[in-house]
Design a protein around this nucleic acid. Sequence first.
DNA 1: TTAATATTTGCAAACGTTTGCGGTAAATTT
DNA 2: AAATTTACCGCAAACGTTTGCAAATATTAA
Lengths: 330, 330
Amino acid sequence: MMNTTLKLLAQQLQLSISTVSRALKDHPDISTATKEKVHALANSLDYEPNAYAIQLRTQSSKIFGVIVPAISNLFYDSFIAAIEEESRKNGYALMILQSSNNTENELNNLKIFRQTRVSGVFACLSAHTQNLEVYEKMSNRDIPVVFFDIVPKDNKYTKVRMADERCAIIAAEKIIERGAKHVLAIFGDPALSISQKRKQAFQQFMEKYAPKTHCTYVNTHSSTEAEIAFDKHYSKTQKFDTVFAMTDEILIGVMKSIQVHNIKVPKDIGVISISNGFIPNLYHPTISYVETSGFELGKLAFVQMLANIKGGKTLTELTVDARFVEGKSM
Amino acid sequence: MMNTTLKLLAQQLQLSISTVSRALKDHPDISTATKEKVHALANSLDYEPNAYAIQLRTQSSKIFGVIVPAISNLFYDSFIAAIEEESRKNGYALMILQSSNNTENELNNLKIFRQTRVSGVFACLSAHTQNLEVYEKMSNRDIPVVFFDIVPKDNKYTKVRMADERCAIIAAEKIIERGAKHVLAIFGDPALSISQKRKQAFQQFMEKYAPKTHCTYVNTHSSTEAEIAFDKHYSKTQKFDTVFAMTDEILIGVMKSIQVHNIKVPKDIGVISISNGFIPNLYHPTISYVETSGFELGKLAFVQMLANIKGGKTLTELTVDARFVEGKSM
DNA sequence: TTAATATTTGCAAACGTTTGCGGTAAATTT
DNA sequence: AAATTTACCGCAAACGTTTGCAAATATTAA
């Protein structure tokens, strides 16, 4: 089937292409009579403007690029859901690529985004990306970049992230409230700044406000590692009465071990984690957690992006606040 | 910063645009000397071909569209991961839109895909989409559509899906092997064909090969409903010894109740489900399940798409087979 | 009636590529 | 030395839009 174009419409109506084009977008120059004729034919011929031609002509694409480490992730899921929703409302589409935490993929994805001339990029850095040159290249092309979650340290970038320190501190507060004597606190990959931040904030807070509480700190890279770590410390003579899991992944490992040992929560051991809520609610009793909402982060990122597009630069680091969600585990 | 284009390169090198274009893609007509010169300048000026111009000219976009009910879904996650991986390998990018199980959104998304002139669409129907006209429109535009998971009944479409009946039958087999006397089988939304298929296959198989086994069938719409249903039947005098959960969502509800009642698995009750494996492995003991791999489905869908693009039509319904993954719950 | 203004439409260039075809100069063959 | 082939390269059209400007027509004012 032949593609309907402005040209075709123009021919059939004995009008010029420009008139048809203007009629279709309600340009005041065009008379109501012709407008109606044009619209009628366009509808009956199922005219759909060619996005590429428009973009070529107008040099703007109405597409946002998104880079996430992995789509299959509870947190990024909801982040994506949020910007997808907003994008639709604003007439943008989303192009989502995953880096799989691999710097090379990340570079490749950015290349695609440059070639596609996306209107903007939402980027979450791969775990070990150091070289930010590529992102400079985006800016040189006037493609705004909003970093989220895993963000660069440099302040010249626009970034939104969770209030990592606050999360950790809220958790610490709750642990102190509970009157914990001995805490096992499990954090993620020590190379990641998110782990560092959370651990540092947690540790400082505990030392300052509950110096007598004994804390054991552990770093793990996977839920299996977390399970093993929990198990190892659990078998020791000196038992802990509270466990803190920095992420869902860690919580999963911890809960595995808790189920294996048939530990009573919260009687024997209290549990608290940082999460978006899905995993903590899988268990009985439900796990108390400090909420980090990917959804809200997405909303925030989007307004930043829009601001960036409209009003030039907005070089700020915004954080979305955390709140405690009470389960039955503490 | 000025955008580097073929024109710019041509001017600087005192060559024609066509020569530059050809040099960049190793056309045999161009001498090695000029090729080198062109490549050198292109590199130093960071030339990136304008995708829109190319697409306008060549009428092909190297972008696939994907419609899923929700990105935040363990199953679709892995499906997307698979086609994303394949797409990258084949030089395609992905545009992912979610319908949120809403027919209107679905229509809108398809419109975007048409306007973007995607090379093809992977579509999972919304739960209650009946009218397939829009998809006809895609075909009219020579945009191949590969349906996955929730697919139309009509045989004129290309579709890939899980072997739903097989899944249910494998589960039934295992239940019979276990020597179950009384089974509680929980299925999803009865309006969905996937629920119907699985239930029908399961029921038929049980009636034929284990007529003495008493089965109770329930349909639920959410994990909370599943939890309540499990709870209700558990409190009855006539206890069941095995429970079958058709989806992860249902399994979550079941496990909630099992934890609440502190039921011993598999001693008191055996558990089996259909899943991609993430949720079943959260628990101890791990849950046995019939694996439905979104990842494999994605791979399959992609080869179908490629076949569709290259060799015209392939109007078949392919299914990816299921296999039993043994946990400790049966 | 003529000039001036308002209304409606069309022309043509531009966006950055790709590609069929034709042209020139050098290399090869007769 | 003339004729033919080969190796390179450029011209120009096309893809489907948008948009500044000019042109044509209709309307109003003088």
